[in-house]
C-alpha cells in the first residue's frame, strides 16, 4: 500500500503531438512521421522522466485528412517499437495490434521476440478492428456488431498458448551435454 505510485505512460503515436496542426509548429520536424530518431528521442526523454511506458495506438486505414493534418497513427507500431527497444533500457513498450488480420502465430512471434530482445518490456493492446475502411484494406467485410470480439477471443488464446509453449522448465542450453532444451 505504501509503495503504490501513480503509473504514467506517454502516447508516441505519430511523433508530432495531439493537435492536428502540431506538424506546422516552427520547432517541429514535419518529417517526424518517418524519422525514427525523433521517436527514439521522445522515448528516451520519457525514460529519463521515469515514465513506465510508451504507447503507440493504431488504425489499419488512412485516418483523418492528410491534406491539412499530419497522420494520426504510426508507420507501423511493432517495427517502430523494435527500433525504440534498441535505444532504451527500462521503459515499457506498448503497442496496439489488431487481432482481425494477423495470423495469431505471426502476432505471437513478433510480440514475444520484441519482449525477449527488450528484456521483458513489451505490452500488447489487443483490439478488434471493426471499421469498414480497415477491412477494405484486406479485401474483407467487417463482422456483424455482435460478433466483433469473436475472433479476438480466439486469437488471444492461441497467442497466449504459443507464448507458453516454450516452457520455463525447458532449461538452458548445455554445451557439454549437447542438449539445448528438453521435450516436455
Amino acid at each position: 500500500m505504501n509503495s503504490e505510485h501513480m503509473i504514467l505512460g506517454v502516447a508516441l503515436t505519430n511523433s508530432f503531438g495531439a493537435h492536428p496542426a502540431a506538424w506546422r509548429l516552427p520547432h517541429v520536424n514535419p518529417e517526424a512521421y518517418t524519422d525514427i530518431d525523433v521517436t527514439v528521442e521522445h522515448a528516451r526523454t520519457a525514460e529519463r522522466g521515469g515514465l513506465q511506458f510508451v504507447f503507440i495506438a493504431d488504425r489499419l486505414f488512412l485516418h483523418g485528412d492528410l491534406a491539412v493534418s499530419n497522420p494520426l497513427f504510426n508507420m507501423d507500431p511493432i517495427v517502430t517499437l523494435s527500433a525504440v527497444a534498441q535505444a532504451t533500457e527500462r521503459i515499457g513498450l506498448a503497442g496496439t495490434a489488431s487481432t482481425s488480420f494477423f495470423e495469431p502465430y505471426l502476432l505471437a512471434r513478433q510480440l514475444k521476440t520484441l519482449d525477449v530482445i527488450s528484456n521483458g518490456r513489451v505490452g500488447w493492446n489487443a483490439v478488434p478492428s471493426f471499421e469498414p475502411d480497415a477491412f477494405a484494406n484486406f479485401g474483407k467485410e467487417p463482422p456483424a456488431r455482435e460478433k466483433k470480439y469473436e475472433r479476438l477471443h480466439e486469437v488471444m488464446q492461441v497467442v497466449q498458448a504459443l507464448w507458453g509453449s516454450w516452457g520455463y522448465e525447458a532449461g538452458k542450453p548445455d554445451q557439454q551435454e549437447g542438449t539445448p532444451i528438453r521435450h516436455m
Binding site: 517495427v79 527500433a83 530482445i117 542438449t179
Partner: peptide, 16 residues
C-alpha cells in the same frame, strides 16, 4: 533437442 533452433527468432524484429 540436440541440433538447436537454427532459425532467427523473428526476421522483421531482428532486422529492425
Amino acid at each position: 533437442e540436440h541440433g538447436g533452433v537454427r532459425n532467427i527468432i523473428d526476421p522483421m524484429i531482428a532486422l529492425t
